[in-house]
Amino acid sequence: MTTEAPPLSEPLEIHFDYTRSLGPVLGRFMTGLAQRRIEGVTGSDGRVHVPPVEYDPVTAAPLSEFVEVDQEGTVLTWSWCAEPVAGQPIQRPFAWALIRLDGADTALLHAVDVEAPDAIHTGMRVRVRWTDEPVGHIRDIAYFVPADAPDDQPPPPTSPAPPAAERADGTSVDTMITPIKLGYDHTVSPEESRYLRALGEGKLIGQRCPKCEKVYLPPRGACPTDGVPTTTEVELPDTGIVTTFCIVNVPFLGQQITPPYVVAYILLDGADIAFLHLVRGCEADEVRMGMRVRAQWRPREEWETSMRNIAHFEPSGEADAPYESYAHHL
């Protein structure tokens, strides 16, 4: 009996900036923050909303009557964050709180810098601690501190400040940028793991659906036609045909090959599904549908568990496959 190695997995980090236009209400709020002022908006019932809302929660009317509120307020409820996660305002144990600023009727969620849970309570007075360089972002409020905290209290470790967005007219903030970074443990399926490990040994392993008998490479775990697990492994040769292709002439960010170059669907001999790869070793305008190709492997010492082990496909010089033989793969 053999035990199979667990599926391959790798850390995957995703990073992008949410760049958001703000509109008249949130734009005014963020502009205020950049000037170290906090403005709320007055609702139809006279209640002052901080943070401001764009539409009245009762009547749904657009709101536009702004009022500046105090930078000190009262904790309505709090919770203890013993293990802060990345991006949170304070990077050591701290309290989250809903804080009703004086002059406001709704509460703002933010972090409060206190040493321990026994240093905060509902009803406690807290005040804003601003960042050194406000940019028009909710993080301009660095965090809150107890109202009686000394001004020279050393600051806690914080998350990096968000970047400043360009301001069209130099003063009002109409855009905010929030960097998003998410980390995952990205796992491939057991079938894909066997396929990738085989690639690491220079082999191409597909799988046959037990129902329709189609051979998939890469293997997919389940047949997309029948929805049943694909279990039978099939080793495929590194030769096949170009079913269809395109010539890339347009440069783009992150491009690794100088245009023009050919990206083609390669159908390996014995496979029923084509995959994308590069065709090189001839002029781009010589590539044609039905052309026979062979894999060009990278030097063995560069192999990893990846399709990158095949650098590209090259014409094999054999006669083209007749159109009828691959028409159903297009």
Partner: peptide
């Protein structure tokens, strides 16, 4: 959460629920 005034603070789901729990307890 709201992508303008809340999500940029990364308030985790457990902390938010804990704020709710305390309101009921107190």
């Amino acid at each position: 959460t709201d992508p303008y005034t809340v999500a940029p603070l990364w308030p985790d789901s457990i902390s938010i629920a804990a704020l709710q729990a305390r309101l009921g307890l107190e």
